[in-house]
């Protein structure tokens, strides 16, 4: 029954992704509250754990407003374009090795292992910019348009650094298959993880993490939203479930990017000092590593102020890209030496 197993796997992975996104919205509020010495939401359910559910219900019940003069079709299309690519990319992320649940052999725990898994993720995360730019344009509002334009310029700029840095890992591992990238690092020795490759690994990790921040439009690079200047940026005019889709897309993209960082630099599901760990341990390890990056997303958001737009562009083109290229060269040198 391979089809049935695939179906179960898909529902597990997508359920997991959506739950993670929901938990992230709660974590965002709870952690920001902690940092600001507040308590955060604590009314819905014990300790406020059901807050995402309440938010979801609220989103559904809100009135759907389409501004006059908006381009109706594209206005409707934009939230879908924002959410779908982020959700698609999770299909190639390897979560654990050989998996058996209740005697059912699930094979390797990922929806599919593409030869070009990394390219797939990068290609579709590149498409998510359309949601932002189209949403901004179709709203027929100057704030939205500016937000959309800024976001798209930013995402295109930082995608370059992102891809260059990912390429470093491809060079180190000799594969674009995400599972193979993990398997190369999964030797039982944590020093084999790509982030411990001298110089190349550390520089790559830092660059990659920062580039993912820009790619997912998070602080300190959230020029798409930029509340003080642009009201809500590209989603100023959106309400109800359309807004919820943008929101969901952002958090899904964050989750996928955190997974990707883990896979590329922290050895994915490889457990330190235990090469053939059972799948549960591997999955737990993977989740622990990913949670760290998810926490980092929130942590940085509530620490740093927003960049200025020209600073952002300078940083992207004059600092990040050269460093990423140099790092790639260094990786080549490293490979030829070892």
């Amino acid at each position: 029954m391979p089809f049935l197993i695939l179906l179960i796997k898909a529902s597990l992975i997508y359920g997991g992704l959506l739950v993670t996104a929901a938990v992230m919205t709660l974590a965002e509020r709870k952690i920001s509250a902690r940092i600001q010495l507040r308590i955060g939401p604590n009314r819905v359910g014990p300790g406020g754990v059901l807050q995402p559910l309440a938010d979801g219900v609220k989103f559904i019940l809100k009135e759907e407003i389409t501004p006059d003069g908006a381009n109706k079709g594209i206005f409707r299309l934009a939230p879908i374009m924002a959410a779908v690519p982020a959700m698609l990319t999770v299909a190639v992320i390897p979560f654990a090795g050989e998996t058996v649940i209740f005697g059912l052999d699930f094979g390797l725990l990922s929806l599919t292992d593409l030869d070009i898994g990394l390219l797939f993720v990068l290609a579709f995360s590149g498409l998510s910019v359309y949601g932002v730019i189209l949403g901004g344009w179709a709203s027929n509002s100057k704030y939205s348009l500016l937000g959309g334009l800024r976001a798209s310029a930013q995402m295109v700029s930082y995608e370059l650094s992102l891809i260059m840095t990912a390429l470093t890992v491809v060079a180190l591992s000799g594969s674009m298959d995400l599972r193979e990238i993990v398997e190369v690092q999964n030797t039982g020795n944590p020093l084999a993880w790509n982030c411990f490759t001298p110089v190349v690994g550390q520089v790559g990790l830092v660059l990659f993490v920062i580039a993912t921040f820009a790619e997912t439009n998070r602080h300190p690079f959230d020029f798409a939203e930029c509340e003080p200047e642009l009201v809500g940026g590209f989603h100023t005019e959106y309400s109800s479930m359309k807004f919820a889709l943008f929101f969901l897309g952002e958090y899904c993209a964050m989750t996928v990017m955190a997974c990707l960082t883990t896979v590329l630099f922290l050895g994915g599901y490889s457990v330190p000092f235990w090469e053939d760990a059972p799948w549960m341990v591997e999955l737990a390890t993977f989740m622990a590593k990913t949670s760290f990056f998810l926490f980092l997303f929130i942590w940085v958001r509530w620490t740093l102020p927003r960049f200025r737009y020209d600073q952002l562009m300078n940083l992207g083109w004059k600092v990040f890209l050269p460093i990423a290229l140099a790092n790639l060269l260094l990786a080549g040198a490293f490979i030829s030496l070892t």
Partner: peptide
């Protein structure tokens, strides 16, 4: 980067300070 890390450390420490919210 060093300054960013410094800021992150500060906010991380803040997470464990007593909270001031009145319920």
């Amino acid at each position: 980067l060093p300054e960013i890390v410094r800021g992150l450390v500060i906010t991380f420490k803040k997470m464990f300070e007593p909270r001031v919210t009145r319920q």
